[in-house]
Nucleic acid binder design. Structure first.
Lengths: 261, 261
DNA sequence: CATATGTACATTGGATCCAATATGTGATTG
DNA sequence: CAATCACATATTGGATCCAATGTACATATG
C-alpha cells in the first residue's frame, strides 16, 4: 500500500474552500492512491516477489499481469524494467522476465554484501547514536519477541538493523543496505518457516545493542559481523542441502509462502 | 547508429559447415549489435552520463532524446526507468528525469560504499588469486602509466581493481562493485581534469598488488582501504570547496568534459 | 527414422495516438 | 499594485495497434 506524503497545502483563507479541500485531501490520502500505474505495479510486484507470493522462476507474462491489475501492458513493462535493474527479475530480450530464483549463490552474495556494508555503516553510525535511537532499537527487540506473524518479523528485523545504522551520514549507503535487507527477507522467511522462529538470534541483537550503547564500535562491529555471517552460513548450508536432496530446489522453495497467509 | 548483423548467408555446402559457423560468429561478434533499441539507448545514455558528456542536472526530455536516436519515446522511457533504478537519473512523476547531479554527498556515499565492498571482496579474492591474475594486474598498472587519454584511464583503473577482486566467489558482489566503480568514473575524470593526472596514486596500486602477490590479505586490505579513503577525502574536499566558492557547483562541473574530446 | 526445414502461434518490442498533469502567462479583482 | 485564478501550452503517462522475434509443431527429405 503506497503511503503518500503531504501535498501542497492550500492557504485556508477563502471561507470553507480550504476545509473542503482538506477533507478531500484526507479522503485521497486514506485511499489507496497509485500516483502512477507504473509505480503502483512496481510496488505491488516487488512486495509480492520478496514476500514469496510470486515464487522464484515464475514467468511474468506482460499480458497476464496487465489483466490482473486492470491496466495495459505498458506500465507493466516499465515496472518490470525497474525490477530488473534491482535484480529481482531476470530479463531476456524477446523472451520475457522471470522472477529471480532463490539460490545458494544468490543468498551467499546477499549475505556477503550485507556483512560488508552493514558493518561499515554501523561503525560510521555508532558515534552519532542518541538515546532515542537506543530506545527505538530496544523497542524493536521487544516487538520481535512478541511478534508471531512471520511476515512482520522480517520487517521488524529490518527496522531494528536500520535503526542502528541510521546515524551514518551516508544516505545512499543506507538505501543500498535497506535494498539488500528487503531482498534477504524472503530467505529469512524461508528459514523461519522451516526452523520455527528461534527468535531470530535475539541474543545477538541484544549483544550488539549493548555494545552500541557503550559506544564500543569495534566490539559492536565484530558482533554484527558474526551475527550476519552465522545466519548466512546456516542459510546457505540449508539451501545447498535441499538442492542436493531434491532435484531443483528452486521450485518448492515457494512453499515457504504457505504458512504465511 | 545501430548497425545490423549480417543477414542469411547461403550455405556453400555441408563439408565446411563447422567452419562457416565460426566465421559467421566472428562477423556477428565484431559488429555493433544493439539487440533492442531499449538496450542500445540504455547503454548509450549511461555511458554518456558517466563520461560527463551529459552533465548532471540535465533534463532528459523524452521527445528530444527519441529524436536524436531516431526512435520513438517508448524505448527512451524504458531506458530511463532502468537508469533511474541504477541511480544515474532522478525521476519525478509527470515532471521527467534529470541526470543525477554530482555532489559532495553523492561522492562521499560512493566512496564509502566502495571502501566497504572492495575491501571485503579483496579479502575474499586474495586466497584464490593466480599467477595470471597478478600478471594481468601488473599489465594494468603499466598501461595506466603510459595512457594519456583521461577517459581510458578510468576504464583501466576499473579493470585493475576488478582483476584483484575477480577470485572472490560472489558474482553479485562483484557486479555491485563494478556498478559503483562505473559511477565513480565521472568523479575520477573530474579530478584528473583539474589535478592533471598525478598517475592516479600508482604507488598505492603497486603496494596493494605487492601485498596481494604475497598473499597478505590483511595488509592488502589495509592499503586498499586507505587508498580509497584518501582519494575519496580529497575529492569530497575539493567539491565542497568549489561549491562554497561559487554558487551551485553542480552546473559547471560539466566542464570537466571539455578537455576530453 | 532422424535431421532439417517451413509454417503457425504466442509473446514481446516499438510506434502512434489520446488523456492527465504540470508550468508559464495574462486577465481580473480586491 | 499585488495576488489569484483561468487558460494555453508543453511534457509525460497510458492505451492500442502493428512489427519483430522466439517457440512448437508439423512436414519433407536424406
Amino acid at each position: 500500500m503506497p503511503d503518500q506524503r503531504a501535498e501542497g497545502e492550500d492557504k485556508p483563507d477563502e471561507a470553507d474552500r480550504g476545509k473542503l479541500e482538506n477533507v478531500l485531501l484526507k479522503v485521497v490520502q486514506g485511499a489507496i492512491r497509485p500516483r502512477t500505474a507504473t509505480a503502483y505495479l512496481e510496488e505491488s510486484l516487488r512486495s509480492a516477489i520478496v514476500s514469496g507470493d510470486i515464487p522464484g522462476g515464475t514467468a511474468l507474462r506482460q499480458e497476464a499481469v496487465a489483466e490482473v491489475f486492470g491496466v495495459s501492458r505498458m506500465p507493466v513493462r516499465e515496472a518490470i524494467r525497474q525490477l530488473e535493474a534491482q535484480g529481482l527479475v531476470e530479463f531476456q530480450p524477446h523472451k520475457g522476465a522471470v522472477v529471480a530464483a532463490i539460490s545458494a549463490q544468490d543468498a551467499a552474495d546477499n549475505w556477503a554484501i550485507r556483512k560488508a556494508l552493514e558493518c561499515a555503516a554501523l561503525e560510521y553510525s555508532i558515534p552519532g547514536l542518541r538515546e532515542e535511537d537506543i530506545l527505538r532499537a530496544e523497542e524493536g527487540i521487544a516487538e520481535m519477541d512478541s511478534e508471531t506473524d512471520f511476515s512482520r518479523l522480517g520487517l521488524l528485523n529490518r527496522r531494528f538493523h536500520m535503526t542502528l545504522y541510521s546515524r551514518a551520514e551516508f544516505p545512499g549507503m543506507l538505501q543500498l543496505i535497506e535494498k539488500h535487507l528487503i531482498a534477504s527477507d524472503r530467505y529469512i522467511r524461508f528459514q523461519l518457516a522451516a526452523l520455527g522462529r528461534d527468535k531470530m538470534a535475539q541474543d545477538d541483537h541484544r549483544a550488539i545493542l549493548a555494545a552500541a550503547r557503550e559506544g564500543d564500535a569495534a566490539g559492536a562491529c565484530r558482533l554484527l559481523a558474526s551475527h550476519i555471517e552465522d545466519a548466512g552460513r546456516r542459510l546457505v548450508e540449508r539451501i545447498r542441502h535441499l538442492s542436493s536432496v531434491r532435484g531443483q530446489a528452486d521450485a518448492q522453495m515457494s512453499n515457504s509462502k504457505a504458512p504465511l497467509e
